[in-house]
Computed example of a mutant assay.
Amino acid sequence: MSELILHHYPNSPFAEKIRLVFGYKKMAWKSVTIPMVMPKPDLTALTGGYRRTPVLQIGADIYCDTVLICEVLDTLSSQGTLYPTRNRGAASTIAQWADSAVFTAAMAYNFQPAGVAQVFAGAPAEVVKAFVADRAAMRGGAPRMAPCDATGIYKTYLRRMANMLHEQAFLFGDAPCVADFAFYHPLWFTQQRTPALAGILDATPNILTWMDRMAAFGHGQSEKLSAADALALARLATPASVEKEVFEDDHGIPLGSHVVIAADHFGLEPTEGELVAATRTRFSLRRTDAQAGTVHVHFPRVGYTLKKASA
């Protein structure tokens, strides 16, 4: 198997989700640091436009969205499983809720003035301004939830989670699953990146104990890698074959078509390429870039739209 390469930056909550999965599964990986805001030329050379963080690269295969990245990592390691057999559907559903509703409320709470002051401590005003503009563009102009609304919603979600953790170590029992990692990362940001606001967690002490338990997994074994070297590895590699993938056609778009895939909300930058696979759970595009060579870019079905590219 080619090396696991994660394109990310330290303050990214979703990247922390995957870094912690690496730790739980005791995996070795390469770390490529990317910019927090656009432009991200080295990353988009691999993805064709997708810019959300993180992105997993395995040779010439590029995996977008932590939902898909978790599925891929789970198949590559026998250390535990992120998807318990008896509760796979429930765990995945809770993870989806945590990655969307809980994350949205938590980050709106975290980015009130006291939190912004800590996240950007010592940064020039133009850096803060660029970040705000970048995230507004990612929301497609939709307003951010007001901190006063986010506070009450976040507290409600924390109480629900505390109830799930009653008399058990993790959300679904004695071992962590994908729901634990999805719930952890926005709370991690509150605790570790905006500690002035972390008092909201004190009302749910079993969540604090659970967070310590999760953090103890660490981040696995990582080594730094330059973006140029990651691109070179992609150029030298050949994407894994998708010829045996079962084609699930829900769009009336045949394989080999030139298509566009984009997130259905937040970070709407499209990726164009040749549709080479459409399974029950993912789409795969083949595209060629001068820097990255020929790659396959993979997306989960949930959260993404597929359509034919304009002629």
Rank of each mutant, 00 (worst) to 15 (best):
L275A: 09
G48W: 02
R287H: 08
A292M: 07
P176H: 05
A227F: 02
Q118P: 03
V102C: 06
Y63M: 07
N163R: 12
S241P: 06
T44W: 05
Q168S: 11
F14K: 07
G122Q: 09
G115A: 12
Q291Y: 01
K308Y: 00
N163W: 04
H298V: 07
L268I: 09
A232C: 06
V37I: 15
P254S: 13
H185D: 04
T279A: 10
H219I: 07
E126H: 12
V127I: 14
F183N: 12
F217C: 06
R282M: 14
W97C: 01
A216R: 13
T281K: 11
L46R: 11
D250G: 00
A114T: 14
A45W: 02
P41G: 06
W210Y: 09
A136V: 11
Q221L: 12
E71P: 00
P13M: 13
A106P: 01
R280D: 14
Y154F: 15
A263E: 11
M161P: 00
G199H: 10
A142Q: 15
M38N: 14
T288V: 06
S310L: 12
P10D: 13
K26I: 00
L46D: 04
L82H: 06
T75L: 10
F181M: 13
V242Q: 11
S92M: 14
P254L: 14
A290R: 15
L6Y: 07
L197I: 09
A227L: 03
Q191G: 00
D134F: 13
C70K: 06
A203P: 02
M36Y: 04
G49Y: 08
V32Y: 02
I69C: 02
K40E: 09
A60P: 10
M107F: 12
T294L: 01
D250L: 13
M1H: 13
T294D: 01
E274G: 00
T190K: 02
Q221V: 13
A227D: 14
D180G: 08
I253L: 01
P205M: 09
S31Y: 03
Q221M: 10
F170I: 01
P300N: 07
S241I: 04
V259C: 03
A237R: 05
V119I: 15
G252M: 06
I153Y: 07
A277Q: 09
F131E: 03
R286Y: 02
I253T: 01
A60Y: 05
P205I: 11
M214Y: 04
R286Q: 15
V127Q: 14
G59W: 05
L76D: 11
A182N: 05
L255T: 01
A114I: 03
G273R: 09
P124I: 01
A182L: 05
R280C: 04
Y83V: 04
N11F: 11
A262V: 00
D99E: 15
V128N: 01
K17T: 09
P186Q: 10
A182F: 03
L285T: 06
S226N: 08
T156I: 01
D229M: 12
D264P: 00
E167P: 00
T93F: 14
F283G: 01
H258V: 09
A228P: 00
F181N: 11
D264T: 15
A263Q: 13
G80W: 10
T281I: 10
A137Q: 15
D65R: 07
A179V: 10
K26C: 03
T66C: 13
F111K: 01
G252H: 03
T53A: 15
A130E: 15
I5M: 07
A136S: 14
